[in-house]
């Protein structure tokens, strides 16, 4: 964040007026500095110490160097959580929300108007609901005598206790259900910008549906696709409540993603140092995607 800094000594009138004009930015800069930048900086610092929730290490933490990071590599918990986070983001965001959102937007542009509006409302409802309510609903849906198993029973198939047997599949589907609306709205807006004449011209040239989609529509909305992929990746990286309510990361860590692991280490086991080390890795991953997103938008703005 840029803090406009006054150089000591005399300032020219124009420069002073210029700084005065920037003054209204100050509250935002202070808030972002205190509540966003400072915690991130402290996180990186604390990840090199053994600071704890209580006891002696809470009052006077000692410097550990890279011990916390070495522990990440040597203990099985972290590599598993990293892998599950990749699976979670890949399956629920990049494949699930993105592909389903695009498919819905395309279908809605072609389908019956009233039906499209109703379906849009149903998809958006899952997204607008408070996260904890969505998580409870998903928990009930996948539980032993929940709706999914009822449906399977009607179809004559034997259900299972999804939250124990396939916890990752359950949270991936739940997050797809919850988050698809965002991609759908992004793609609806993007498709509305594709001029109808180009589609019609391609139709005249005898291009089929798939060809038009692949050769015309998708290339024309590729900036929206890229932005959407970045944003849903970042949103999904940060998902905590959904997983926490549905499985609490279990059984035996089988659905523990990085945010859940950081929470458990810091608050359940009281090891703030190790918790912040995991949080720092998560922040770094977020920063990589954030930088890519900024570069992308900057390229589009030129």
């Amino acid at each position: 964040m840029h803090v406009p800094e006054a150089t000591p000594g005399r300032l020219s009138r124009a420069r002073r007026r210029h700084l005065f004009r920037l003054l209204p930015v100050l509250p935002s800069v202070l808030l972002l500095g205190l509540f966003l930048l400072a915690p991130v900086a402290w996180s990186f610092y604390a990840s090199f110490t053994d600071v704890a929730l209580s006891g002696k290490a809470a009052r006077e933490p000692s410097w550990l160097g890279l011990d916390n990071y070495a522990r990440m590599v040597s203990e099985p918990g972290f590599p598993l959580a990293l892998w599950l986070t990749v699976v979670f983001v890949g399956a629920s965001a990049i494949v699930g929300q993105n592909a389903l959102g695009l498919a819905l937007a395309l279908l809605m542009a072609r389908g019956n108007r009233a039906l499209a509006r109703t379906v849009g409302t149903a998809v958006v409802a899952a997204w607008v609901l408070p996260e904890i309510v969505a998580a409870f609903a998903a928990y009930a849906y996948f539980s032993r005598d929940g709706t999914l198993n009822q449906l399977l029973g009607v179809a004559g198939a034997q259900g299972t206790d999804w939250l124990y047997a396939f916890p990752m599949a359950a949270v991936v589907l739940a997050n797809t259900w919850r988050g698809t609306a965002f991609s759908m709205l992004v793609y609806r807006a993007a498709l509305a910008e594709v001029p109808g004449e180009i589609q019609e011209a391609a139709l005249m040239d005898g291009a089929g549906g798939w060809q038009r989609l692949r050769l015309i529509t998708l290339p024309m909305i590729r900036n929206s696709i890229a932005s959407n992929l970045m944003l849903i990746t970042l949103q999904t990286l940060a998902v905590f409540t959904l997983v926490w309510v549905m499985t609490a990361g279990g059984p035996a860590g089988a659905s523990t993603t990085l945010p859940v692991l950081a929470y458990q280490e810091a608050f359940k086991f009281g090891d703030i140092g190790y918790g912040t080390a995991i949080a720092s890795v998560l922040v770094l991953i977020g920063m990589v995607f954030g930088l890519a997103y900024v570069r992308l938008l900057r390229g589009a703005a030129r």
């Binding site: 840029h2 509540f35 402290w42 912040t276 998560l282 900024v294």
Partner: peptide, 28 residues
């Protein structure tokens, strides 16, 4: 000349996973 860098820093700020910083925020 501050505007563009500031706006891109702000945009970058939107990308921080908030759940990740809850442990350090608790410490703060």
């Amino acid at each position: 000349r501050f505007t563009r860098p500031f706006m891109y820093s702000v945009l970058f700020g939107t990308s921080l996973p908030v759940t990740a910083i809850m442990v350090p925020v608790y410490g703060l």
